[in-house]
Each structure stands twice: as C-alpha cells, then as structure tokens.
Design a protein around this nucleic acid. Structure first.
Lengths: 188, 188
DNA sequence: CACAACCATTTAACATGTTAATCGGTTTTT
DNA sequence: AAAAACCGATTAACATGTTAAATGGTTGTG
C-alpha cells in the first residue's frame, strides 16, 4: 500500500507546539490530527458497546458471572455439545482465554468436558444442569433489559443498525489485510 | 485491548442449533430461547469492531504500539495538554489502565507529565516530539486503511452507521441502570 | 486550626486479550 | 514403522479491563 500525502487538519488545532510540520512553506499547524479521534469508527463501536454492556453487567455480576463466562454459558445452552475450537468461534474468544474460563467454569460445575475417543486431542464441552439453572435465573432480567433497550431505541433502528454492522463486517472480511510491512521508514 | 481472533474450522456444520438435545442418556435439556446468541447486539458490536481493528493492528504492531497506547497518543496529539482524568474520558480508558500505560509511554519518552502547581493531586500530560514523530510515521497508513474501508463500505452507509451508533449510545445513557439486586438467589 | 469529607491518581488483585511456545496426539512422508 | 509434519488444546508471559483499596492532596466545618 502506498502512503497518501494528504494529512489534513480539520479538528481542533492543538495549541502548544504540537509540531508544525509543513509541506512546502505552508504551516499545517497541528499536523495529522486525522479524523477527529473521538469519532473514529473503532471508538464509536467501543463506546456504543460499552453503553450497552453497562446495563447488563450488574445483573451478571449479581450472579458472579463475567461477560465472557456468560457468553460461553449461553453458547453452550444454544448448541448443546460443542468442541472447544468451535466454542471459541461462536463465543468469539481466543483459545487461551477460553481455556482458562472453561477451567474455572468446570470447577464451578457449570460446564462439563469429555474427551473425544476418536481424537484424544479434542474435547467436547457441555453445560450442566446447574449451568442451565443459572441461565434460567439470569435470562429473564437480561431479556427485560434488552426489551427496554429495543423500546427506547426503536425496533426499526435496531434492525437497521444490526444490518449495517453485518454489512460492514462482511465488507471488511473481504478486504485484504495489510501485513504491516508497509514501507518501514526507520529514518528520521 | 479487545480483539478476538480467527478460530476457523470450516466444514464443521454446527449440528443441532437450538434447544434440547439428547445424546445417549445425557439430556442437555431445553432452555430459554432468548435471541439467537450470535446475533445479540453486544456480540454484533464486538465482532464488527474486531473486523475493523484487525486491519489496523498490523500497522500499530509494526511500531510497537497497542491499540490503547495509540488511542492515548492520538488523543494527546489532538488536545495538546490535558489532565489525566480528562484523558481517560476522551481515550475511553479506565483510570488504572491509563495509569499503567502512561507510566510505560513516559518511560519510552513518547509523553511527558508535569504536576499542576495549583493542585498537586493533578497532573498534565502532553506528547513529546518523539511521540509526534511516531504519529507521523503511523498516521499515513492508518488513514489509507480507513479510506479503503470507507470506499468499500460506502461513505453514506458509514455515516448512517455512525449516526445510529451515536443515537443508540444516547438512548442508553438516558436509560436508568438496573442495580442488579433483582432476586438474588445465590447459587450453590 | 483541627479534622473529617472529598478528590485525583495510583496500586492491588484478579480476569481477559493476545502472541508465542509447548505438549500430547494424529497424520503424512519416507 | 519411525521420523517428520500437523493439529487441538493448554501454558507462559505480558498488556489491559475492572473493581476495590490505598496514597496524597484539598476543602469544608466546627
């Protein structure tokens, strides 16, 4: 990928000597503020997600569950039995995190594991009855919160948002990944 | 940081999707429907954000920067000088995380700190010239990636998405937080 | 002025994110 | 079959997320 030479200033110019780098003779003042930082897509997604999770955390916490543990429990309840690798995919967790969490959930007897005789490298994970009870205890509250959110935001807008999120995800999955070995200008 | 992965294992049709299942004598009984787990709003936001960050990470990594460190550096470049508490707000980081990261960035001479004489509890953080150079080295690639994303997804849709994200965030901030003291049946 | 209440920041402790390395188990190659 | 190549899962090591507690500094009140 080539480097664009269009660092433009548009946000608020930083006072101080935030480096006046100029191309030619014009002072581009604050330099490279890039898109207003607080409005970058990753930040927007992060903030919005947090504004959502903020409402669910108290309920999970009341049942001694972290967000990730809840994701796993729910995924298991929805799929019955599932291999660790597949569980990592649906619960969107990395292997190491999943490994640790499964260890803890197993100790709490919320889930169970058994080896696959056909391939001893693999194991099958499933939820226990105790785990199911926990879900039954938490789900109503979660559903109520979700319903309230939907009501406040609007079914239609929520649906539109979900659609856009999926479209963006699809568009980016189709976009080739830059390997980070761009230009490597260690000079300067 | 937040960035799940790439656990793929295709050709693995997730048999049995929802609900009850009975393998042998083990009944992984039924449960509450709930919205299809994988389509929950938090998961959608998480996955989409990851699909975005996935493209930026290689570039950041090439410069030995984590996502959070980059957020801080950028926020500083955009605001000149700023107090720690305010920095935590704009970079969307919790105090403890920020404290650690600032310590490291200061050791790397990318940022500086000075106490506020008027109130010794507070300190002002600012970016150094070395930090600015780092930004100049990373920004072009980041901007190029962002531009490519915008091109693939569409300016209009990106704008719509940002708008919906903000609206949802606003709607949820106005929603009272459940304190999680519902029924509290301590498991056991 | 003494002191409690309050505030900004940091430290502590534990869970997860993340990449690399490791460890059995399985498949392929010779 | 034995060695090499692969593979799934875990462990290691370090950075961050998250809540609670500690540390110093500041303010309000008596």
């Amino acid at each position: 990928m080539t480097k664009p030479h269009k660092a433009r200033t548009e946000g608020k110019p930083a006072e101080k000597e935030t480096a006046e780098k100029e191309a030619g003779g014009k002072k581009v003042a604050a330099k490279i503020p890039m898109r207003d930082f607080s409005q970058s897509l990753p930040m927007s997604l992060l903030r919005t997600r947090e504004s959502v999770m903020r409402h669910f955390r108290p309920s999970l916490r009341a049942h001694d569950l972290t967000e990730q543990q809840w994701r796993i429990i729910r995924a298991l309840a929805a799929s019955g039995e599932i291999e660790v690798t597949e569980l990592a995919r649906v619960a969107f967790l990395l292997g190491p995190s999943l490994s640790r969490i499964l260890r803890d959930l197993e100790a709490r007897k919320l889930i169970e594991r058994r080896l696959l005789k056909a391939d001893l490298r693999r194991s099958i994970v499933s939820i226990t009855s105790k785990g199911l009870k926990l879900i039954e205890a938490v789900a109503p509250t979660s559903e109520a919160i979700y319903a309230e959110m939907t009501k406040r935001f609007g079914v239609r807008k929520l649906s539109d948002l979900q659609a856009l999120l999926h479209e963006l995800e699809a568009a980016l999955l189709a976009m080739p990944a830059a390997d980070g070995a761009e230009d490597d200008l260690s000079d300067q």
